[in-house]
Design a protein around this nucleic acid. Sequence first.
DNA 1: CTGTTAGCGCGTTCAG
DNA 2: CTGAACGCGCTAACAG
Lengths: 348, 348
Amino acid sequence: MNSPQRMRRATIRDVARAAGVHPSTVSRALGNGGQANALVNAETRARILRIAAELNFRPDIAARTLKTGQSHTVGVLLPDLTNPLFPPIVRGLEDRFAEDGFVVLLGNTDDDAQRGELVLEGLLSRGVDALVVATARRDGTQFLELSRRLPIVLINRVFDDQLVPSVATDEVAGVRMAVEHVYRLGHRRIAHVAGPQDLSTGRNRYRGYVAEMGRLGLTVEDSMVCRAGLYSPDEGSRCARELLQGPHERPTAIVAANDMLAIGCYQALHALGLNCPEDVAIVGFNDAPFSDLLSPPLTSIRFPHYQVGLEAAQLVLERIADPSAPIKVIFLPPELVVRGSTCTKSTT
Amino acid sequence: MNSPQRMRRATIRDVARAAGVHPSTVSRALGNGGQANALVNAETRARILRIAAELNFRPDIAARTLKTGQSHTVGVLLPDLTNPLFPPIVRGLEDRFAEDGFVVLLGNTDDDAQRGELVLEGLLSRGVDALVVATARRDGTQFLELSRRLPIVLINRVFDDQLVPSVATDEVAGVRMAVEHVYRLGHRRIAHVAGPQDLSTGRNRYRGYVAEMGRLGLTVEDSMVCRAGLYSPDEGSRCARELLQGPHERPTAIVAANDMLAIGCYQALHALGLNCPEDVAIVGFNDAPFSDLLSPPLTSIRFPHYQVGLEAAQLVLERIADPSAPIKVIFLPPELVVRGSTCTKSTT
DNA sequence: CTGTTAGCGCGTTCAG
DNA sequence: CTGAACGCGCTAACAG
């Protein structure tokens, strides 16, 4: 409590005056460049740092930004933070960025073009050094253009031509793991409750199912696939009934495109008097937080969302450091979480 | 595609040159002050605005910040975005702030004092105009001091002396609603699975239970309360067994301090061969996203997290506009969501 | 190794 | 109503 409370924050000039040096010396002493070790006398530097700390000095980033054009700030554009997919991603971004002194500016777009435009403006005018984009419905070319002026990293969204760095979870690999898992357990009649086919997730997961069935030498019968219109328990239930009640031989395993759909499958099984996993095994997708609370606990595919955030941040930092660095596209593999819905293991 | 692609963004000077006026005229035309209507000739102004739009001009906020000291940026300090409590709050903050052109800078502290300090520094040095604080473990006096220099709004954390504006959910009222609900259904032996008593949530909810039991003229017997050590299904199950198996008369309703604990109660009932809601009614707390997926669907207390965000942002904006505005402390009441775990209503 | 000078883009004086 | 000049706080370039 020795320093008097001042309303105005201490500036670099205050520190300079107190240390009896020139402001620019202070600037150098604060090691802005990184190679600051040799730029200023060691003991002068020590004194300056001490005094700066005493005065509770904090560099004004606005001024630095104005001067250097670097805001040490990264904009994150996403549809809706409330979607449980995103918090771990944002957390990952933030954690990695924090290591390098970067901060995250958040922008929710609601997948609304107009709001998206507005939010984007807001971020750009604040001089973000880079952009992380996780919004789905947006004209790709727009980002391609932007990416020439600003490092941009896409999340869960890869351009076919791979001209923009991206990090995505490998959904196809995920479904393949699910199908292979039940195959190894002895199942041969493996059905798929597909997600909405107008969403990329629905399509990709369906493709993964088809691909893995092919690899295993199993034929994909039409009667073994049902497409849900929504990712909802009701649609899952409808599809499961259709798959289980048809005239064909009953499937012994169902791979659902999503945990919500899997819950619907549970309900259908229950209504039809069938047991899981004895009569029908079920695999979900996403490993939602409640998956292990169901009975039986749901086997599911878990995605490394936090790592996606970490990797994306890493990519951003690399491109800020060297904008001409090669464009990387990273696919992160998911993990199979085996629980009671596919294995009869007695739980105490 | 008529304007040539330039790397550097258009500045106020470019606009001035193109419009044949002085930069300061452009600055005025862009209506920074608000009372700009009379400061500049209407048609000159119109022309400038048109040209600005053509040139895709966006004011550099860093420069503006440097000049005015207002960054139109608000820092949000929270322990962990991954906690499902926070995304809707942040969303509410963002939505309200967006209306006034403010943007959210995110900072996760992990309730770690050191990291918290670092993050706080980062936000302050970026010149945030205000702070929204939702971290729990922090010396209150620190914020009291800060709040003299900067508008601060606390979330879910109220100082006894109410010297800092805050928005919080009314947890006591929530438990009271839960208890009253089952009372109205005819229950008299109402038990409570309390949360950890070293957390404010656990304490507040326990207090609410005691208060409402008192109001209803019911005595709080020791045997009707069990304290969980964690908010986990396992602890919930342990407590429920204790409550249900004791030598005393069995409770007919259990009010749990949290949905996780309520799930544990389900498991205990199941293990003991009891039915919900016929034998024992159960009320959860928080209305987690999975609550309506359980069987029976869980009656729970829902908190208006999104509104908390909205209100907090509103408070912040009010205090930015007038730092001497009166200090408000807002409690938002929760909502009772009645589902199958307390009412026998046949579900198709 | 340190002091000097200039300017980033904008808003706000103060004259005209 | 508009032009001119200045400075916010910091850093980069050039001298010394």
